[in-house]
Structures are given as C-alpha cells and as structure tokens.
C-alpha cells in the first residue's frame, strides 16, 4: 500500500499526495494514522507539539526536561493510537497524558519537601550542615538565560509559584481555551474541583501580582 508517497511503477501521486491533512479533524487524522499513514502521525505531532510542550514546560519549568517529557508523551500516545477510543476528544487524551507525565516527573523529583536550611530531622549541627542544600551559582548559561527570559515575566514567575494542579488548570483554561468539563476529564477530577483549582489559582496570582498595582 502506498499512502504517503507516489506509487512505485505508476509515476502518479497516490491520493495521500493530494490530501490536505490540515483540513481534517483530529479523529480523521487518527484514523489515517491507525491505517498506517506516517504523515498522519506527523500531522498529530504538528498540531499538538506547541500546546503539549507549553503545558509541560510550565509544569516543570526546565526546557530540556520539558522536551524529554513532551517527547515521552507523544511516544506514549502515538504508540497506543490503536487503543485510543474515538468517542473521546483526542486533545483530552493527549493533554491527560502530558499532565500525568509532568506530574509524575515532579513527584519523582521531589519525594519530600526540601529545605535549603537542612533536614528537619537533623539532630546535631554536623547533620544539619551535611543536609543543607547549597544553591548553585547564579551565573546563567545561555540556555538558562533563554529559559529565564521565556518564563521570566511577572505573571510567569507568579505562575511558577502555584501548585502544579492549579497551573495545569489555569493554562488549559486561559491559554488553551478548554472548557471546564474537558479540563475535568483531562485532570481526572470532578468539575467542582477544577473550578476550585482555577479560582484558587487566580486568587493566588492576584495576591502575588499585587505589588504591580501599587
């Protein structure tokens, strides 16, 4: 079967040559991917790489790590495309996996709350010193400079101080424009919880940005 390239021997383009994937719905592109079209896979990546990467980047706030996690998300989704249930929105599915992948990383990275002043379980001065975390140099590498510039706006800094769940809910609501019902599906929580997350997140942002209004 020659779906994405000219059929060998015929010299004529296959239907896929003429097909404009950008006009198809997600469900139609998924069906083509399930039929084995590589272009369909690439179309799905093209459609969702920015929103998925942005969501994860705002969750983990580390560009390199966000790329790895976004890549993991797409690999998981695209390798499981046969198991995708078309009754649900594709966007909900991929955002759900992106959110879970980001949260898993945060949980792995911070098994316990860390303190810069040493472990709260330290009994002697030596134990305290041994468990004290020394912040790394403040000199920025070019990559860090770019990251800080990207997430360096007042509102991005304030967003970084929110709970990960609040951040996801607010990004999905305000940046991606997803309705509350879909956010509930993505985050796997009741609708009321989503409203609470968004309300509390906004309220915290208002408090964090209060100094700008003075």
């Amino acid at each position: 079967m020659c779906r994405d390239t000219a059929c060998p021997g015929t010299g004529s383009p296959s239907p896929a040559r003429i097909l404009d994937y950008s006009t198809l719905t997600d469900q139609q592109v998924v069906q083509l991917a399930r039929d084995g079209s590589e272009r369909a896979y690439r179309e799905l990546i093209g459609r969702y790489q920015r929103p998925v990467f942005s969501l994860i980047y705002r969750l983990v706030r580390d560009r390199e790590k966000a790329e790895d996690l976004a890549q993991d998300t797409f690999i998981k989704v695209l390798n499981a495309i046969d198991r995708y249930n078309p009754e649900y929105k594709f966007s909900s599915w991929i955002f759900k996996i992106a959110h879970n992948t980001g949260l898993d990383h945060l949980r792995r990275r911070r098994p316990d709350t860390l303190s810069l002043d040493g472990s709260p379980h330290a009994r002697t001065a030596a134990e305290t010193e041994a468990s004290t975390i020394t912040p790394e140099s403040q000199d920025e590498t070019p990559e860090q400079f770019t990251e800080n510039r990207e997430l360096g706006g007042e509102i991005e800094v304030a967003m970084g101080g929110l709970r990960a769940e609040y951040r996801t809910a607010i990004v999905l609501c305000h940046v991606e424009g997803r309705p509350y019902e879909e956010i509930a599906e993505i985050m796997d929580v009741p609708l009321g919880t989503v409203k609470t997350y968004i309300h509390r997140g906004r309220k915290e942002l208002m408090q964090k940005l209060e100094h700008l209004r003075c």
Binding site: E38, Y41, R42, I45, G46, Q49, R50, P51, F53, S54, Y57, A66, E67, A70, Q71, F74, I75, L78, E150, I155, E156, M159, I170, V171, H174, V175, R202, L205
Partner: peptide
C-alpha cells in the same frame, strides 16, 4: 494577562526525534 500568555515551541527536529 493570562489569555495573552504565549505557547512555546520545542526545539527544531522535535517531530523527527519522536518519530
């Protein structure tokens, strides 16, 4: 301010690395 937050692009070649 929230609705004007930008989306970010992953680095070039992201799709190829996934594929």
């Amino acid at each position: 301010a929230l609705s004007s937050l930008p989306q970010f692009d992953p680095s070039v070649g992201f799709a190829n690395r996934v594929m």
